[in-house]
Design a protein around this nucleic acid. Structure first.
Ligand SMILES: [Zn+2]
Ligand SMILES: [Zn+2]
Length: 662
DNA sequence: GTCTACGTGTTA
DNA sequence: TAACACGTAGAC
């Protein structure tokens, strides 16, 4: 049995209104109840009417036992009168204070016709007026708002979608990266490896790389000594490729092609040299087995050399140097990372060892300038390649270096094996660079931003990087975003740790991040990667924390609800210029409030359900509540509502903070 | 125009 | 947070 207290308060006013409407209201209620029942209208009517009325009656008149319907009406009327006197003070008074004069008015108007009652309710009542005023106020504001809001809504789905896309892309990309690595070829591997080595975060990649590396086999020993498998892996792959390439091409000029082909060979069909490479690859494991612990590289190289042309000697020398230099490289790499002298690092690494250096510099580079450094490295390699190819023919050492470079290049180019030609190289290099950058940057950037360095630094770094890379800038940014999302997705745990670390460092950014999360699309236009990276971090953190539950589902939905959010994204810009965020913020609230009615999904269980329970508050109060049975309430509508509320609060608070900051 | 119920505000 | 109450958009 419903508690008399509540029903008394609210019901009385409601009942008053109801009574005001009179029987018509009851009819409406019956109808309203019917509608939900639809098929079972008749039964529903009776049931609902019974259920609904009885509780109401009880509520209305706790003292009174539920009598016949007619009596109930009368009773309600009397109850109204009674309560009108008593109740208005308590319940109505409170409402009145907020909404308006209704309380006094309501009882007076209650006798009015149903329509009149409705009108009185809506229009006449001070509350209505007040509410209307608010509503009207809201409406005009909403109108202006609505204009943005629909746009915002439209934008919102986009935002939603975009983040989804990012996440999806991120996931897909992350997932795809591996297969791509396998398919696309060593280029990806090299990139991933580099990323793995640097971050050590992405195990999946490293695993793939490892698998690839296994083919290369022997290299592991050296890498293991280094401690970082990833570095070793990267080196390994590069080494193996180098060795194979060096052996295969026979002719220096062909080296580039062979190198590319070697990469392509992995990916595409093995070209002319591919057969040789394959042999080399096959021999490598064998060599590893046979030679076992000793420097497998040299052995492999030897094997390859024996099979292949005499250039293998260079490879052997390289291998030897590599073995020796491996440790040095590692040390150098560490230093470089600290020192961040890309050029020197590259040169040294290159000269010292082709394989290690490349992965190392990216590590170092990503830390300093993510996109730029890798690009630079590759670009240098690319540019250096043709020249080096020429010079390489002159000197074996140069060849080694060039091979290493070339090897990396083909690996990078992977998809673009054709670069062998010096002329084609620059263009291809540019294109390749962009591609590479996209992949490399994300990993690197994330790590960097996530890792110890402050956002400001990362921002600074990032900013120059895009500037440095012309083509890559826009795509890189978008990619960066995606990457960031990817990172979030894949590295969520890792990122979380990092984020936690970063948070204290850059606690300020968090609000920005949140905003950014919503604004991500906005940022797209903005060339500034700064926001994006922090946003990503923040979004991940914030989203994870607040939205974690939502994130998968609601985040999208929220983004919709995010209409408010969308308003954020859209508005902040306007707000910022407008001036104080407070005013705009206040204005925003009403804007946010108004939403388009969302129709039920029709697919969820509640939606499928056609019969009203008749017991829930909504069923009971359908007259006044105008709410569908709780059991029939669409799940999505519920979610969005909550999410919207929560998101609103969060977003508002966040926005306020951002606004203030801005 | 009617009816349903969504969105929002208010109250407890 | 749930319940109540209201205005009104949207479907019919
Ligand atoms: Zn119900
Ligand atoms: Zn539904």
């Amino acid at each position: 049995m419903p508690a008399p207290t509540k029903p008394n308060r609210r019901q009385t006013p409601a009942q008053r209104k109801k009574t005001q409407r009179g029987t018509s209201i009851k009819g409406q209620t019956c109808n309203s109840q019917k509608t939900p029942a639809e098929s079972t209208r008749s039964s529903a009517r009776t049931n609902q009417a019974k259920s609904g009325r009885s509780p109401r009656r009880t509520r209305k008149d706790p003292g009174r036992s539920p009598g016949s319907g007619s009596h109930a009406v009368n009773v309600t009327g009397s109850a109204r009168l009674r309560r009108s006197s008593s109740l208005p003070d308590s319940s109505l008074g409170q409402r009145k204070s907020q909404r308006g004069s209704r309380v006094s008015v309501a009882p007076c108007r209650s006798p009015k016709a149903c329509t009149g009652g409705k009108n009185s309710r809506r229009g006449s009542s001070g509350k209505g007026a007040a509410s209307r005023q608010q509503n009207t106020r809201n409406n005009p504001s909403s109108i202006s708002i609505n204009n943005p809001s629909p746009g915002g809504k439209n934008e919102k789905p986009d935002h939603k979608e975009t983040p989804r896309f990012y996440h999806e892309d991120g996931v897909e990309d992350a997932a795809s990266l591996e297969p791509n690595d396998a398919t696309e070829g060593s280029s990806l591997k090299a990139d991933t490896q580099g990323g793995n080595v640097q971050t050590e975060d992405e195990k999946s990649f490293s695993n793939d790389n490892e698998g690839d590396l296994k083919q290369t086999a022997g290299a592991a020993s050296c890498d293991d000594s280094d401690g970082q498998l990833g570095d070793g892996s990267g080196d390994r792959t590069s080494d193996s490729s180098e060795l194979t390439s060096s052996g295969s091409p026979g002719v220096q000029g062909s080296h580039d092609k062979n190198d590319t082909s070697s990469v392509c060979g992995n990916e595409l069909d093995h070209l002319v040299s591919s057969g040789k490479q394959d042999d080399g690859s096959t021999f490598q494991p064998d060599g590893v087995k046979e030679l076992a612990l000793k420097a497998s590289r040299t052995d492999e190289s030897v094997l390859i050399v024996t099979e292949k042309d005499g250039e293998s000697l260079d490879a052997e020398t390289k291998v030897e140097r590599q073995d020796e230099t491996m440790r040095e490289k590692e040390e150098i790499a560490v230093k470089l990372c600290s020192g961040e002298s890309e050029d020197t690092g590259e040169k040294e690494t290159q000269t010292s060892t082709p394989t290690c250096p490349t992965p190392d510099p990216p590590h170092c580079n990503p830390l300093t300038a993510q996109p730029g450094s890798p690009l630079r490295v590759f670009s240098n390699a690319a540019t250096s390649n043709p020249t080096k190819a020429l010079s390489a023919s002159n000197s074996c050492v140069l060849e080694v270096v060039s091979q290493a470079k070339t090897n990396f290049q083909p690996t990078v180019y992977g998809a673009k094996p054709q670069h062998a030609g010096s002329l084609t190289i620059p263009d291809a290099a540019l294109k390749v660079q962009t591609v590479i950058v996209t992949r490399n940057t994300p990993v690197i950037i994330c790590r960097e931003s996530l890792q110890p360095r402050s956002l400001g630094e990362s921002d600074l770094r990032e900013t120059p990087a895009p500037g440095g890379e012309k083509q890559a800038c826009t795509p890189s940014e978008t990619k960066d975003k995606r990457e960031l999302h990817k990172k979030e997705m894949s590295f969520s745990s890792f990122s979380l740790l990092i984020e936690s670390n970063t948070k204290p460092l850059t606690g300020k950014h968090e609000p920005n991040h949140i905003v950014d999360g919503a604004q991500v699309p906005m940022q797209e236009h903005d060339p500034v990667p700064k926001i994006s990276t922090p946003s990503v971090d923040s979004s991940s953190t914030l989203s994870c924390s607040s939205e974690s539950t939502r994130s998968s589902f609601s985040f999208d939905t929220e983004s919709e609800t995010g209409c408010g959010d969308a308003s954020f994204s859209a508005l902040p810009g306007s707000w910022g210029p407008e001036g104080t965020g407070l005013l705009s913020y206040q204005t925003l609230k009403p804007q946010r409030k108004e939403r388009k009615k969302r129709s039920r999904c029709g697919a969820c269980e509640p939606c499928l359900r056609k019969i009203n329970c008749g017991q829930c508050s909504c069923c009971l109060n359908r007259r006044t509540g105008h709410q569908i049975c709780k059991l029939r309430k669409c799940v999505e509508l519920k979610r969005r509502g909550h999410s919207s509320l929560i998101s609103r609060c969060d977003a508002q608070s966040l926005q306020v903070g951002t606004l203030e900051v801005s």
